[in-house]
Amino acid sequence: MRTNRVTLLLVVVLVTSTIASAQASKAPAGQTLNTTSLSAAADVLLNGSAVWDQVPAHRISLNRTPPLYDTDEPASLEIPVLDVRVVRASGKVLVQMSWADPTHDSASLPEVPNTPPETRFLKLPTEADDRFFDAAAVMLPTKPRAVTPSLQMGDTDDPVRIYYWNAARGPMLMEAAGRGTTRRTGASFAAHAAHEKGRWTVAFALPDLPAGTPLAFALWNGSQKDRDGRKYFSVWQALQ
């Protein structure tokens, strides 16, 4: 998969300090900008923000991973494309992914109380054992390198960082250095998600990334029992 270096220009719109008035200006790539505040970046994450409307979307075709096990149920390509928008603001790279998914596979899982379970008479129940939740992720190399890491969660020499969001469990930052090595770092990141009219719109705040950083996208469709490597994925895209 290392050779899959199809690069597609993701137009990056540099948002100036006029972000509050939601005016995106199309400044040339590479220009740095440090005048907007973090709270403005957080505002941009929200779907309601008019900023996204002014940013052209890049339509990325998705692939299904081949069945990992003989025992896997077959899965069809129900989500063929993903729309991605990228904005630079407040020293962050804001990535919005949006895709059509009529099944809203989520749940509000109970907040685990801070008291030890043995002190509580009623323990939280497992509501369901057979549901899987929608999820999305952006993967990028941990260290800047000339070659892109393997799409299968990087390699030993080229580890990756995965910004993963799950409809029920929220955002979590993960790391991996090859297939089967993905682990949660315990860190999180700012994200915003909404499911409206059969469409997910999910925005992530990534740290500032240099132009040329490869990004790969993945989606999981809960109703297709997606989890783990059973998912949709894109090839590497170069951030400009």
Partner: peptide
């Protein structure tokens, strides 16, 4: 464990259980 539940499917005795609270 990441809660993928392939083990539950594979066990012919169904002696693994999923804790959704813990994931």
């Amino acid at each position: 464990c990441q809660g993928y539940r392939y083990c539950i499917k594979a066990c012919p005795y169904k002696k693994i259980y999923y804790n959704e609270v813990a994931g």
